[in-house]
């Protein structure tokens, strides 16, 4: 029952197990990325093509995932939906990194009142739960996928401000930053050449986990009608319309949700794996 008593074989096995899970996650993410890129060529049908003769057909050899209330092929819509989700996840988090990291670096390296102001703003944003902030921003910006992405990017940015600020403070007080300063390097050079490369690994971990969160947020906003607008396919908006046919056509709700779940699960596996691999401090005890 003791925690310390852990044979090397067992430890190797558990590392291997986690490692394998991360690789599995990476493969699943790659499949989704490929599906998104290749959607125009691999989709069996046009995702917008309605057909009054094939309304709400259950899954079959012809329609693997069935058809929706307008006779559109669900598989094709799920494949095209991967585009909206992945694009939203990557662009929103990319935006959050571009907003958050420079601001966090400035706060961490400048200190003083600049740091105080930036930190209080980040605190204020973090006081509003992520999804509520995103919904409020998207509501005021107006319903569109681009606005949803912008809203998610802004809502996700304070996490990166905090991360970059903390890491910059640690790095700035380290011996090598001290040495770089003593050699007469200007602060911006220290930030770019010495601090940024050192904070890249935890940023990568956080970005991966944030993409997972952003994909759920995009699906949530689209589900509420604040993201991708119909008839363009998006997993969230597909789930919204599926709700009305839950009794007669449950496959409409199963497949888009399963896609979100699998992609987010895979991203979380990759994120956890990256954390274990890149950050020795967070190694699972």
């Amino acid at each position: 029952m003791s925690v310390a008593a852990q044979s090397p074989a067992r430890r190797a096995l558990s590392t291997f197990f986690r490692h394998r899970l991360a690789v599995f996650g990476l493969v699943v993410v790659a499949v989704f990325v490929l599906a998104a890129i290749l959607a125009p060529w691999i989709s069996p049908a046009d995702p917008l093509q309605t057909s009054w003769t094939a309304i709400r057909r259950p899954p079959s050899a012809q329609y693997w995932f069935g058809t929706d209330e307008n006779g559109r092929d669900v598989l094709s819509r799920v494949l095209w939906g991967a585009r909206a989700s992945l694009m939203a996840g990557i662009i929103a988090v990319g935006g959050a990194v571009l907003i958050g990291v420079p601001i966090g670096l400035v706060a961490g390296l400048a200190g003083g009142w600049i740091d105080a102001i930036i930190s209080r703003i980040a605190d204020a944003m973090l006081a509003v739960p992520f999804l509520i902030l995103a919904i409020a921003l998207a509501a005021f910006l107006g319903p569109a996928l681009e606005n949803a992405m912008l809203a998610i990017a802004i809502s996700a940015s304070p996490v990166f401000v905090r991360l970059a600020r903390g890491m910059a403070q640690d790095a700035a007080s380290s011996d090598w930053a001290e040495a770089a300063r003593a050699m007469g390097n200007p602060p911006w050079r220290i930030a770019l050449r010495h601090v940024l490369p050192n904070i890249a690994p935890p940023l990568l971990v956080q970005a991966t986990l944030s993409i997972a969160e952003a994909i759920i947020a995009e699906a949530s906003l689209s589900f509420l009608g604040l993201g991708q607008q119909p008839p363009s396919p998006s997993w969230g908006s597909m789930l919204n319309s599926a709700q009305r046919f839950i009794e007669s056509a449950p496959w409409l709700a199963i497949f888009p949700g399963l896609a979100i779940f699998l992609l987010v699960l895979a991203l979380n596996l990759v994120g956890d794996g990256l954390r274990d691999a890149l950050d020795p401090r967070s190694q699972k005890r």
Binding site: A219, F223, A253, G257, F261, V264, N268
Partner: peptide, 22 residues
């Protein structure tokens, strides 16, 4: 726990309605 964190809760809700209500 990983499933719980990755599951979009609105989808879980729809699936539960499908199972327990429908």
């Amino acid at each position: 726990a990983l499933f719980g964190i990755s599951m979009p809760n609105f989808w879980l809700g729809i699936m539960m309605i499908l199972l327990f209500s429908v």
